[in-house]
Write a protein that binds this DNA or RNA. Structure first.
Length: 410
RNA sequence: CGGGGCGUAGUAUACCGGUAGUACGCUUGCUUUGGGAGCAAAUAGACCGAGUUCGAUUCUCGGCGCCCCGACCA
């Protein structure tokens, strides 16, 4: 992609009405555009990042046997009334059509997925099954905040699984826990599986996946020795207490952002929707259901909060919109332009995802903007490259500079 | 939803009870060219409504919007 053709432009100033780091940087760099409080459009660069995150999540969900679907976003009100959520869940948007019919937009999909599963699962032989989707969710939040970390519209991966027995659910639950940790690790994040309230439908604990960041909304207590971590809202322990799990470490308190959760829904929904299968004895049984969410757009925000520095965004390679930022210097210098053009063509042909700043701008402006965009690797083509044949390669995260020849790059 | 703050060109800001100035951006020309250049010209603005006033962008009230704190958070 040539930057002269890129739809968006970086801005020198951060928007005055954004305080959070993720919103300031993403807006400045042209990754997103705010529509209203808690609702952002994703522009070409931002969309690429979202898709990178989605792809990592998709691979790990497929790896544990998940099957991807795309469920409706506009929902009839009936199933929501059937489960009681229409009246009891206050973040449900309620829409009225011109003929006064009621609808909602999905803030979660149990009301949609359960009737779908009921249609295709009749026997214990059809279980277990796990289906998921990646898509937009809508929640009528009283207060959107922190840029893309907590919005009224956001992108989420939500998986729903159905099981014959509690044992099988527990088995899958652990598989998912590992899959989730793998996802976060691939995104360059350190997440803690955190014990939390199980929500409305189970007395059991659920797990929330927390990434430590001051921008987060939750307080957690975690052991400095083992992997124990608990949401402070359900814990009677306090900072500096000895860890009750390993007995060796002590607890630290920190702010964290919830980037995923896994719930045991029991038979709440399968009962509400009269979803039964025949077991081996031919008796009707309600499947046990699980729900597994990952906040895709929130993850993007958390990545910005975690890695962004005073110069701008810093993307881990796994989610960067481009792998390489090729920057040519020397306005109007034909030799430099030709050399940069040639390198761009070669790298593009090799399949390298590359953004080429071919614009006639001064070096300072190009470097500042390159830093802001946060692409992991910058290749500079200037007089020096023409003279020596060696290209300067700069690591955005570390600032480390190495010289490489054309042959080493392509 | 309670509390606080803020709404001025595309962006960031300034001043003012007498209709607005600066910087960046955008357009044009010349110079400059390895860390956000210079000169010149050009473009562009008071959230909405009501009230007070001879006159409101400025003061008052209401609305709307945005941010922050809290509450809330399948």
């Amino acid at each position: 992609m040539k930057q002269s053709k890129l739809f968006t432009k970086a801005r020198r100033e951060a928007p005055a009405d954004e305080v959070s780091k993720n919103a300031q940087l993403l807006v400045r760099a042209g990754y997103v555009h705010k529509e209203m409080a808690g609702v952002y459009s994703y522009l070409p660069l931002g969309k690429k990042v979202l898709e990178k995150i989605e792809e990592v999540v998709r691979e790990e969900m497929d790896a544990v046997g998940g099957q991807e679907v795309r469920m409706a976003t506009l929902h009839p009100s009936e199933p929501w009334k059937q489960t009681g959520a229409w009246d009891s869940v206050d973040v449900v948007f309620k829409l009225l059509s011109r003929t006064e019919k009621e609808y909602t937009v999905g803030q979660s999909e149990e009301e949609i997925v359960t009737p779908i599963a009921r249609e295709y699962v009749q026997s214990y032989k059809d279980l277990p099954v796990a289906i998921y989707q990646i898509g937009q969710k809508y929640r009528d939040e009283l207060r959107a905040k922190s840029g893309i970390l907590r919005g009224r519209e956001f992108t989420m991966k939500d998986m729903y699984s159905f099981h014959e027995t509690q044992e099988d659910f527990d088995r899958f639950y652990n598989v998912m826990k590992e899959a989730y940790l793998k996802v976060y690790s691939r995104l360059g994040l350190v997440a803690k599986a955190t014990e939390a309230s199980g929500g409305a439908f189970t007395k059991k604990l659920s797990y929330e996946f927390m990434v430590l960041t001051d921008a987060g909304e939750d307080d957690i207590l975690y052991c400095d020795h083992c992997s124990y971590c608990v949401n402070a809202e359900i814990s009677e322990q306090k900072e500096s207490d000895a860890c009750t799990r390993c007995g060796k470490g002590s607890l630290s308190r920190a702010k964290a952002s919830e980037v995923g959760n896994i719930f045991d829904l029991g038979t709440k929904y399968t009962t509400d929707f009269s979803f039964t299968y025949k077991d081996k004895e031919g008796k009707d049984q309600h499947p046990i259901m699980g729900c597994f969410g990952i906040g895709i757009s929130r993850l993007m925000g958390v990545i910005v909060e975690t890695f962004g520095d005073d110069k701008g965004l810093v993307w881990p390679e796994s989610v960067a919109p481009f792998a390489v930022h090729l920057v040519s210097l020397g306005k109007g210098d034909d030799e430099i332009s030709k050399m940069a053009d040639a390198l761009y063509d070669e790298l593009t042909e090799k399949g390298v995802e590359i953004l080429y700043d071919d614009r006639d701008l001064r070096a300072g402006e190009k470097f500042a903007e390159s830093d802001l965009l946060g692409i992991p690797k910058r290749i500079v083509v200037g007089k020096e490259a023409v003279a020596t044949g060696m290209f300067e390669v700069v690591n955005r995260a570390t600032g480390e500079v190495v010289k490489k020849s054309r042959a080493e790059l392509v």
